[in-house]
């Protein structure tokens, strides 16, 4: 999935629902969504930043900044996944395993 692209001399970003919006209309919610997608989704890509492909100065500034931010996340994506998967894992497993024990004088039963 391409999250940032340059087309017809303008910069665009991908919005949930599949449409692309011009980069100077980006909001904080959009940026957060791009960051989450970059880290969570397996096959995200971006058009590289190039002054030749993006003409308006404002688009260039916004595109370049966001592109660099998301590229920074891509380099740490594997670490993020590892770290997120291990987050409080021991504690989570402790309380989750015990979830399979039904209430009732401590007798253990399998949950269907």
């Amino acid at each position: 999935m391409k999250l940032l692209k340059s087309e017809n001399g303008l910069g665009y970003f991908w919005k949930e629902g599949g449409e692309y919006c011009v980069i100077d209309k980006i909001t904080k919610e959009d940026l957060l969504q791009l960051a989450n997608f970059t880290l969570d989704q397996p096959d995200v890509e971006f058009d590289s930043y190039s002054e030749e492909d993006i003409k308006p100065l404002a688009h260039r500034i916004i595109y370049k900044n966001i592109y660099e931010k998301l590229e920074g996340l891509i380099t740490r994506k594997a670490t993020f996944k590892d770290e997120a998967n291990r987050l409080y894992l021991k504690e989570y497993e402790k309380y989750k395993v015990e979830e399979s024990v039904l209430k009732g004088n401590g007798s253990k039963q399998e949950v269907a």
């Binding site: 960051a35 997120a84 979830e99």
Partner: peptide, 24 residues
């Protein structure tokens, strides 16, 4: 920022488990 969001998600999952009735 993204990692802290994940932490809160996992925290919420753990608390949901804690809320469930259980005897030991």
């Amino acid at each position: 920022i993204c990692m802290e969001t994940k932490k809160v998600e996992r925290f919420t999952q753990i608390v949901s488990c804690l809320y469930k009735e259980q005897d030991f």
